[in-house]
Design a protein around this nucleic acid. Structure first.
Length: 373
RNA sequence: GCUGGUAUGGUCUAGUGGUUAUGAUGAGGGAUUGUGGUUCCUUCGACUCGAGUUCAAUUCUCGGUGCCGGCC
């Protein structure tokens, strides 16, 4: 029984329903990143109001702090963080490209530096899966070998092969685990291979044979040309079942989301919208603006005249500029809210456009405004 | 009244008798995507005024002015 069902199609784009133990999520959708069990600067209540149906947290970080015993005592990560909608957990694979974790890869797994006390931790496919079983997320991700962007073809092939081996061990661990906090937990594989379509396709095929609930695409958003990413999404989809929930990991800019959906992607996560907000970069229908720049110092207009979020209804750019420049915490709270609202609204409009068979028209219209600068 | 110190981008600073005068911050532009208010790239922007010495003064001398301090 598949966890994913397609409801409407419009060219390569489609809408669907992803079924998890905590409800059905309408696709395509975007998950804000809640690494430590919280979307930075946004309260759960605000996320619910913005129609955010799913978050993604990080297995490795939660495992280090506050630790599994406390989260198990709370009754799982959902209960610990009081989030009753769907929840993904990332395996820790993304940490493999971050220098400050100083990753060392062996056949066993990867050793990473614990950022809290600088000790070294071994994360194997088995360990990562057991952590996620214990956290009880609705969708667990396999531990993948995320390659560093720009390496040789041999390097990408090597990481794809290791990713398949590790994925098999994750699957085995997941299938035999008797103590799942969440009995309905799904497990997604992650296809690697960079911009090499043949490696990507073979990796996706091998993963599909292992029987994952879906196969995701990893390793994007770290340097490749956007056109390459869209091409790879198209190519990989040709070898996967139609009802594979195609999760493109790590993507979060408006134009990339729009184009990834246009090529058949269903699901996304990224720290981009919230991180950009913390850096003062704001999404608007007329393109991105930088609220820290003095050009906004005396503008009493909202961030985005077409936006219905409370930040745009109540506050001027001059005020937000002032908060940002004086390091007031509310700057991050308000700007993060706006950026996530913008993305949530975009995804909703995308779903409506697909259902009404007007996706291409919507896309062109959005791009005309967003890229007008 | 007498006297010591000081004066360099918007702000804070380094340094020098001679080519393109440091660095930080700021301002403009760009990047940031499955932990981080992070970090990085790029552009702009200054020698207090007057006189003197000198081939040449932002630099040395004298004076003016501003600022900080000490003494009667």
């Amino acid at each position: 029984m598949s966890c994913f069902e397609i409801t409407h199609e419009n060219l390569l784009a489609r809408t669907g329903l992803l079924k998890t133990a905590h409800g059905k999520i309408e696709t395509p959708f975007f998950m804000p990143v809640a690494t430590k069990g919280s979307v930075k600067n946004i309260a759960h209540g605000q996320l619910r109001k913005m129609d955010i149906d799913c978050l993604i947290s990080n297995a490795f970080i939660n495992y280090l702090k506050p630790g599994l015993s406390l989260i198990e005592k709370a009754g799982g990560l959902h209960k610990f963080m009081s989030w009753d909608k769907s929840l993904f957990t990332d395996s820790g694979g993304f940490q493999l490209i971050l220098d400050h974790f100083n990753p060392k890869i062996t056949e066993k797994g990867v050793t990473l530096t614990n950022p809290f006390d600088k000790s070294r931790e071994l994360i194997s496919p088995e360990v990562s899966t057991k952590i996620q079983n214990s956290l009880g997320s609705d969708v667990a991700m396999v531990l993948d070998h995320q390659p560093i962007f720009g390496k040789s073809r041999a390097n990408y092939l090597d990481s794809a092969i290791r990713t398949i081996e590790w994925a098999e061990r994750c699957k085995k661990t997941h299938d035999t685990n008797e103590n799942k906090t969440n009995k309905g937990q799904l497990l997604f594989g992650i296809a690697q291979g960079g911009n090499h379509a043949d490696i990507r396709k073979n990796c996706a095929l091998a993963l599909n044979k292992l029987g994952f609930d879906s196969v995701a695409l990893g390793g994007f958003g770290i340097g490749e040309a956007q056109e390459d990413m869209y091409r790879i999404i198209r190519e990989v989809k040709t070898v996967l079942p139609k009802n594979n929930c195609t999760y493109v990991m790590g993507i979060g800019s408006p134009i990339e989301l729009l184009n990834a959906v246009a090529n058949g992607a269903d699901c996304f996560d990224s720290a981009y919208p919230t991180r950009m907000a913390r850096h003062g970069k704001i999404f608007t229908h007329g393109g991105t603006i930088q609220i820290n720049k003095s050009i906004h110092k005396d503008s009493f207009d909202p961030l985005d005249k077409e936006c219905a979020c409370f930040v745009c209804k109540e506050h001027s750019k001059a005020y937000l500029h002032h908060l940002f420049k004086t390091y007031e915490q509310n700057a991050h709270i308000l700007l993060s809210h706006h950026n996530i609202h913008f993305i949530a609204k975009l995804m909703k409009q995308i779903r409506i456009a697909i259902k009404e068979r007007e996706f291409d028209k919507f896309k062109k219209n959005f791009e005309r405004g967003y890229l007008s600068k």
